[in-house]
Amino acid sequence: MSPSAAVVLASEPGSFPHSVLAERHPAIIAQVREAFPYGPEQHRALDALLENCTKGVIEPLPGGAWAEWGIGTYAGQSWFDVPWLWSESYFYRRLLDAVGYFAPGPWQGIDPFRPSKLTELDSPETDQELAALDELASRPAEERGAALLHGSLWGNRADLGFRLSDGEAEGRDAVPDLVADDSERLWALLDGTGTLCLIADNAGRELVPDLLLLAHLLEHRRIERAVLHVKPYPYYVSDATTADVVDALRRLVRAPGEAGRYGRLLWDAMTDGRLVVRAHPFSCAPLPYADMPDDLRTEIGRASLTVLKGDLNYRRLVGDRWWPPTTSFAEATDRFPGPVAALRTLKSDVVTGLDARTEAALVAAEGQRWRTGGTRALIQVRP
């Protein structure tokens, strides 16, 4: 489909994208500043980034990086006047430069978000969620699968993690939590599937449910092999990297009961190749998946199904545009290679695939807050 909807920008004061650039990014700089005892050089660079991202313009990156991702097109423009997807990604790349992540030296390769990731992974809430797996163990496999799917969908909403969806409540509510639910189509595709690609979102308590879902699918032979795509370097505060996958697996392996059993299953699956981790450079690109390079397009195109987790991946999947919410999900994803599914909690304005009745009920109940508040979710599938 040739995109017709306008690209999301952050130039309108009061809009959600504007608040991210004007308020959230400065708060993230403050958080990173306190995460490690950085030296004067890093603090000066963080000060400069704070000034630049709120009042300055897009500047070239060291070493000519991002040349193929539009830096030449947007250099000299305000952060608020370029595509929001692009400026958000550029911010995190600049943040890593500021703390010395890429440069030779003592801070090279040090994840500035790691302390918060580990705190979340080792929290009492994670203990409670993992303990809930023991209760699920007595349920039929289909019910366990449904609960794990919802745990993966809702991520770190602990009150919903691993519980079975109340189908009757969904029917009673004028506006259901799931604004689109293709779960039956998803399970139909996950029936003897060869290779499943899962493009991960966040680390910590959101990555753990993703891994548990993969473990369930492998154990019950609904898939033969899983390829888990993560970020090659820290990104968007909590996005998962290979190190985060290892941390999550270690957390599971040392847990008691069912959680530990799942952890050992996943550990064995990695050692024998049934679970593979990928960290392609394009995973940190400021571009939609329609623009993915040929090697990644070929790899994903060979998969039986690709599942994309989270809000950012959804924006990259359909294009970060002001689509009318009733735009067909199939049409918005027609440039993605192979069958695709999205598991997403809504945390930004972009959405497709809703029916007109659901959209009208959401607007009547909440105005436009339903798009960004994280209280609604969707499961969408394009076979």
Results as ranks from 00 to 15, higher is better:
residue 380 Q to E: 10
residue 337 P to Q: 05
residue 95 L to F: 04
residue 62 P to I: 09
residue 123 S to R: 00
residue 350 V to Q: 07
residue 9 L to F: 04
residue 51 E to Y: 08
residue 132 A to F: 05
residue 9 L to W: 04
residue 265 L to R: 04
residue 71 I to D: 02
residue 288 P to T: 06
residue 31 Q to T: 13
residue 247 D to F: 07
residue 98 A to H: 07
residue 189 L to D: 02
residue 85 L to T: 05
residue 337 P to D: 06
residue 39 G to D: 13
residue 283 S to I: 02
residue 323 W to E: 01
residue 199 I to W: 10
residue 112 P to H: 02
residue 298 T to P: 05
residue 307 V to N: 04
residue 348 S to W: 01
residue 198 L to M: 08
residue 261 R to D: 13
residue 328 S to A: 14
residue 144 R to H: 01
residue 8 V to M: 01
residue 101 Y to C: 05
residue 132 A to Y: 10
residue 357 R to T: 15
residue 238 S to F: 02
residue 181 D to K: 08
residue 11 S to V: 01
residue 371 R to V: 03
residue 47 D to C: 05
residue 249 L to R: 03
residue 128 Q to V: 14
residue 95 L to D: 03
residue 271 T to W: 12
residue 100 G to L: 01
residue 378 L to F: 07
residue 37 P to V: 08
residue 372 T to D: 01
residue 18 H to T: 03
residue 16 F to W: 00
residue 311 D to G: 07
residue 365 A to R: 15
residue 230 V to W: 01
residue 274 R to K: 13
residue 228 L to F: 15
residue 275 L to V: 07
residue 9 L to S: 10
residue 325 P to K: 03
residue 367 G to D: 00
residue 272 D to C: 06
residue 127 D to M: 00
residue 367 G to V: 10
residue 164 L to A: 13
residue 339 P to N: 10
residue 343 L to D: 02
residue 74 Y to I: 00
residue 47 D to N: 14
residue 101 Y to V: 08
residue 283 S to E: 15
residue 334 D to I: 01
residue 84 W to S: 08
residue 147 A to W: 06
residue 200 A to I: 05
residue 82 V to I: 14
residue 128 Q to C: 08
residue 207 L to C: 04
residue 168 E to D: 14
residue 180 A to R: 13
residue 175 V to K: 09
residue 86 W to Q: 03
residue 82 V to H: 10
residue 349 D to V: 11
